[in-house]
Design a protein around this nucleic acid. Structure first.
Length: 193
DNA sequence: AGGAAGATCTACT
DNA sequence: GTAGATCTTCCTA
């Protein structure tokens, strides 16, 4: 299992968000592996983006966004942990929010974590997928390019193709006049078609 | 101390 | 399908 290189994340957040679609997110637990295909993402910038956590400058909790690309940035909103991957060209600030996954390995564990038998409800939303994969603040700032990490992102199984759709970001109070949300067309695990 | 935040679940009109 | 309560941290006063 080979993680994507750091250079993948050292580009414009929107580009990274677009290209993360179809990649595999792998969560390594003590006894098992949980994984899912990334089907929905959103890009966030730094000081020029009013919706970004980094908008009001560097704080303790958003520290990772200002650091090396290719790490996680996890924070709590409305009682849910949300998973971001730090992504930006060197010297800039930005991150990509993982909004939903398609479950691949460890579905039974995910069902237990989510307390539901409904496959469609397992990972079809940013707060849901973190519960399903047992992602909490403990995984904040983990390096997803290091194959030894408990959370990594790897290249997709080859040969799969799909159409990409874009839209405005979801749930954002003050959005930029751009489409910064990307998702796989027709995938049932996308939170909002 | 108080309120806002990238959301989710439930229960209804 | 929409509306409301409630989820848990971190920020600002």
């Amino acid at each position: 299992m080979k993680a994507l290189p750091r250079s993948f994340y050292e580009r414009d957040p929107a580009t990274v968000a677009r290209e993360l679609l179809g990649k595999m997110l792998v969560r390594r637990l003590a006894s098992q592996i949980l994984s899912g295909k990334i089907v929905e993402t959103e890009a966030y910038y730094g000081e020029n983006d009013p919706a970004s956590k980094a908008y009001k400058g560097r704080k303790n909790f958003n520290e990772p966004m200002f650091c090396e690309a290719g790490r996680t940035f996890i924070y709590m909103v409305h009682g849910n942990w949300l998973l971001n991957i730090v992504a930006h060209p060197k010297g800039e600030v930005g991150a990509v929010l993982i909004r939903s996954l398609e479950p691949l390995q460890g579905v039974e564990v995910m069902k237990k974590n989510r307390k539901t038998e409904n496959i469609k409800a397992l990972t079809s939303g940013p707060g849901k997928l973190t519960k399903a994969l047992a992602i909490t603040k403990e995984l904040n700032s983990v390096d997803v390019t290091d194959s030894n990490s408990d959370l990594i992102i790897v290249e997709n199984i080859e040969g799969e193709s799909f159409d990409v759709c874009t839209s405005r970001r979801i749930g954002v109070k003050a959005d930029l006049p751009r489409d910064l949300r990307f998702y796989i067309k027709g995938n049932i695990f996308v939170s909002k078609p």
